[in-house]
Write a protein that binds this DNA or RNA. Sequence first.
RNA 1: GCGCCCUUAGCUCAAUGGUAGAGCGUUGCAUUCACAUUGCAAAGGCUGUUGGUUCGAUCCCAACAGGGCGCACCA
Length: 697
Amino acid sequence: MPNLLNGQPYNPQEVENRIYQIWEKSGYFNPDKLPQRHKKSFTIIMPPPNANGSLHIGHAVFVALQDIIIRYQRMKGKKTLWLPGADHAGFETQVVFDKKLEKEGRSRFQIPRAELYKEMLEFTLANKKIMEGQLKKLGASCDWSREKFTLDGNIVKIVYRTFEKLKKDELLYKGKRIVNWCPKHQTSLSELEIKYIEKTDPLYYIKYGPLELATVRPETKFGDTAVAVNPKDKRYQQYVGQEIEIETVLGQAKIKVIADEHVDMNFGTGAIKVTPAHDPDDFEIWQRHKNEIPEPKQVIDKYGKMNALAGPYQGLKVKEAREKIVQDMIQKKLLDPAKTDPNYKHNVATCYKCGTTIEPMILDHQWFIKMTMRPKNGRLSLRDLAVKAVKSGKVKFATKRFEKIFFHWMKNLKDWNISRQIPWGIKIPDSGTEDVFDTWFSSAQWPFASLMANKKNDFKKFYPTDVMETGWDILFFWVARMIIMGLYATAQPPFRYVYLHGLVRDKERQKMSKSRGNVIDPLGIIDIYGADALRMALVVGNAPGNDPIIYEEKIRGYRNFANKIWQASRFVLMNTEDFKLKTKPKLNQRDKKRLRELNRFKKEITKLMETFKFHKASEKLYHYFWHVFADKIIEENKPRLRHENKKEKIAAQYLLLETLKITLKMLHPFMPFVTEAVWQNIKNRDSKLLIVEKWPE
RNA sequence: GCGCCCUUAGCUCAAUGGUAGAGCGUUGCAUUCACAUUGCAAAGGCUGUUGGUUCGAUCCCAACAGGGCGCACCA
């Protein structure tokens, strides 16, 4: 350990790796190896980072916050478990890997499935290893002996068990269903994985025999199986239930007119074409009128091109087909160009990853989870289980705001398509298909799965966990579904407390992204300023739920603070070398006042820690250490240290050493490295390692 | 359409029913003393607008303006 007394500025590079090794060797990251006084368990399951790249600044935020909570609770005497993991991250990793292949001039569609899987596994495991080193660099005091990977055999087993349970409870159905299909990634996506973008397209009015109807997608007309009108619409009552003769670009045809409440009389002409194979609403209409109209007709293939049913348009992309068919229909007087509204604004579903327009499509063997229906022998639907748990306070949100958003989302919950057609993931146990699970289906089970698949009795000892800390951007993707699946599979909530942090932004409030060129690489920052400085910069002023703003000057400020701690500590230690603990100091009024002030401060910080206000606690600690302890208390006592009267000197030494030790302890969760490094230089320290010191109260 | 949030110092954010704080930045001064990765000091705010409740509002309520976000969405 570097000698603090050598007079050099604090050098994190020299200290951090060594300190981390000392902690790791001590075994204190492992709850089973903590000293006797640690009794009651306290658990955080780490959101497993996606093993498809390096850690970015967002990961650093969660490491900082979770490590603060864990270190604080450990010092308080809890048997703390912070369980690390890595996520194979299904679709997300597939997208990353597809890009990588593209760069290499390859494509996943030309690589045999098994071979591709093997290559992706190697890629993921390599990344996982890199990430572990990066988590250590950030100071994460997690229990590496319990690390789990989402593709571990015993995790998969638990995921299958839940799948079977859902089947037994009739909360799962499989079938030919319409799904959100991304033609680029060649997979279906859940409602959460699509993004609606407002687009302006022409709205055409086309002739269907005696009727006229409005559409933006005339190219799907080959897949029309009916025309629908509102049952209350007097204009069309004579046609309802009848087959009408229509002329199409391909010749004469017959089509049935049906009545459905869904149709808005006030939009367009009040009559719509029904294309169940390529429109989710039309699919629903077909479900309601199965006996009246024929089976859906697929006219667009998986690549977004017209198929054989489109006759002369076969092979054309949807957009090209549309332009062509519009021209042809104008010629045949089936479309009146004068009526076309060229500026019709509507929302188009796109893939949240690539922006490709979603092509709704009917696929077979699609598994869906019923979110709002009651299970076979149960009273509450999956949704109601979760809503009840949050309403009753069994699961609490650190920020009320997110509770409201959570309820609102739950209200609109739809069934969840958990089938994906990509190779990367956990295979669905279904002989009819090669599909894999939506990665969030297994992630939703992570808190209990990672404990059950771990050491004996871990589940019993550490579940339900205490805090789930993650970004608010995955509130629905992950947090809500963990609550749902946790309650369903274990009859207990997966965690008691939800703390959601925001998305890291730069000074202009821009999201950080490679394309914007504003990314701050946490590892690069650590190399320059140290992990403590980065952690503080990410925590101070970062209230839960707000987007933290980070810039280099801020980080530099906390690097300076780390040095301040180092230098002030040096001064105190230099001047207290001859101080004996046993000596009883004779304190004056000012000393007593300072100690009372420190006492109040301890209480204040503890209260902030208990209420998860780390953004405040860190700020106050910074202020106290620098502007009260260093600027005032040390300065006030400098003359006394040189005083001829021994008693004065001893009193000053006592006051300085006591204040230093207590502030170091309170700073430790936030800046673990520099505080531990100083602690190692204190001769008469209580415990050998600051990491297991008692939290001052 | 439904819903949520924000608006406070140049910037980033706090706080409280009794006319507001911190960091960064800015300006001036200091510096053989633990620390220039420093110290001392200063400037800087009718808390978005308009009403209401109150003895008193930045805080509670209503409306408005601007900004952000979530959900839904129909041809």
